[in-house]
Design a protein around this nucleic acid. Structure first.
Length: 413
DNA sequence: CTATCGCTCTAGACCACATACATGG
DNA sequence: GCCCATGTATGTGGTCTAGAGCGAT
């Protein structure tokens, strides 16, 4: 991974696709991610120019390099003179924006060597991947640019939709005044957060839609100023944890009580879920608290900050994780499931029980798939496994009878 | 209080085979 | 040191299963 495009193996890689765990050149990125609606939703960002293996999340204006969180921390540690370097957060995107469109969101982005790209594109042109994309505001094919490396919130919000180009860019709230951040380039400014205000409804947008398409997995925990962000000190949170553990955080494991936290969350809860709350669809997940409370195996929440060298952990997590570990881990289910403190009084009776139970089921299903998410080391092997025929889940020899074909969902016997 | 039953949940095994890696000439 | 051929180890996902855990009786 790194340096050379994982797909064509020819061109230098430029972007990183977290979903595929692959480094791709621009043309391969476009071709691969235009293959189908699902791949279009993959969130990509620039590749770290230092380690060439992690997605970049910040651009150092002084050094003119894109850096992943790890390399940023290493290179801009407070103990070094580089700590004053001005850095600019790098947006991520989905869909199939052209290099020109990418240039529009990354002011520093320049089109790669055109000759090389065209050569690659010519080669890939034989793949007959359709690029006829009709983009509608809620069509999964719509291109999306999101901020902070990855929260893809496809919301038909006037302030965020670039109607002209067919791809959209969405920003999540900038809670932390990122140190030394440059002004965002035109078109990629931190527009007001999508205003997930209580009860806000988007035209033609159901809560389920919001819930389903909210790419909650890929929220990067980038907490540099957690006190400001959460409005509570970490010490306080730790104290709560020590005194009452997870139960004290949420008051009770009882569902009804959990719902009540919708309005009056304890301070630590508010702090721990603050980041996500800001991007949670308004009161869309009555199931969230339910899922949290019914979760037998405590989910893990781990925050760490490079400045305070503090950590907040649940469930006895050791806290030995390296920066790279949590950089890539996404948000834990616990973190993501908390009921928003700003959530308006959502009484049980206000939600149809059928809808609620349905939402609970869907949520648990999603949580289940997320919980054991592992990092795929070899995308090629994954790709192969994804299309391999099986019998009762086991791979079968090519040509043998199978009972499951991932491609056709058919059975030969 | 202990034993048993039924249910749910989870970790690990299993499979084929492309590919990464190690070794020797 | 470099290249090539050969052999071995690894990793990939869906399903199944054994066993642990839990509540009810």
């Amino acid at each position: 991974m790194g340096y050379i495009c994982d797909f064509c193996g020819d061109q230098p890689s430029l972007v990183y696709c977290r979903s595929d765990a692959a480094c791709l050149c621009l043309s391969c990125d476009r071709n691969v991610h235009s293959a189908n609606a699902l791949s279009k939703r993959h969130s990509r960002t620039l590749l770290c120019e230092r380690c060439n293996s992690q997605p970049a999340f910040v651009r150092c204006a002084e050094e003119k390099v894109s850096l992943c969180q790890n390399c940023d921390w290493m290179g801009h540690d407070a103990s070094t003179s580089n700590s004053t370097h001005k850095r600019q957060t790098i947006n991520s995107y989905s869909g199939c924006p052209s290099s020109g469109e990418l240039s529009s969101i990354w002011s520093f982005f320049s089109q790669p060597d055109s000759a090389g790209e065209s050569a690659c594109e010519q080669e890939l042109g034989l793949m007959s991947i359709s690029e006829n994309i009709e983009s509608t505001s809620w069509d999964p094919t719509v291109n999306t640019i999101s901020h902070n490396s990855a929260v893809v919130v496809e919301v038909n919000d006037d302030c965020n939709v670039d109607k002209g180009s067919g791809w959209t860019r969405t920003s999540i709230p900038e809670h932390r005044p990122a140190p030394q951040l440059l002004d965002q380039p035109a078109g990629s400014t931190y527009t007001s957060l999508p205003k997930f205000c209580p009860q806000t409804k988007y035209p033609g947008l159901s809560e389920d839609d919001l819930y389903d398409d909210f790419n909650i997995d890929e929220v990067d925990l980038n907490l540099e100023n957690y006190e400001e962000l959460f409005g509570v000190t970490l010490n306080h949170s730790e104290e709560l944890l020590e005194n009452g553990g997870i139960d004290s955080l949420f008051g009770t494991k009882d569902m009804s009580a959990a719902d009540s936290t919708c309005q009056g969350a304890v301070a630590a809860e508010g702090s721990s879920i603050g980041l996500v709350n800001a991007i949670q669809p308004a009161c869309s997940n009555a199931a969230s608290a339910d899922s949290v409370m019914s979760n037998k195996t405590d989910s893990i929440l781990y925050f760490t900050t490079k400045h305070a060298h503090s950590s907040l952990s649940f469930s006895g997590l050791t806290g030995e994780s390296s920066a790279g570990d949590y950089q890539d881990c996404g948000a834990s289910s616990m973190l993501l499931m908390g009921e928003p403190p700003w959530c308006p009084p959502c009484t049980e009776s206000s939600i149809p029980s059928a809808t609620r139970s349905d939402a609970v089921m869907r949520y648990k299903e999603k949580k289940k798939t997320r919980k054991f998410e592992k990092r795929v080391r070899y995308a090629s092997r994954k790709a192969r496994a994804d299309v391999r025929k099986r019998v009762k889940g086991r791979f079968v020899k090519a040509g043998d009878a199978y009972d499951y074909d991932p491609l056709n969902q058919t059975r030969s016997c």
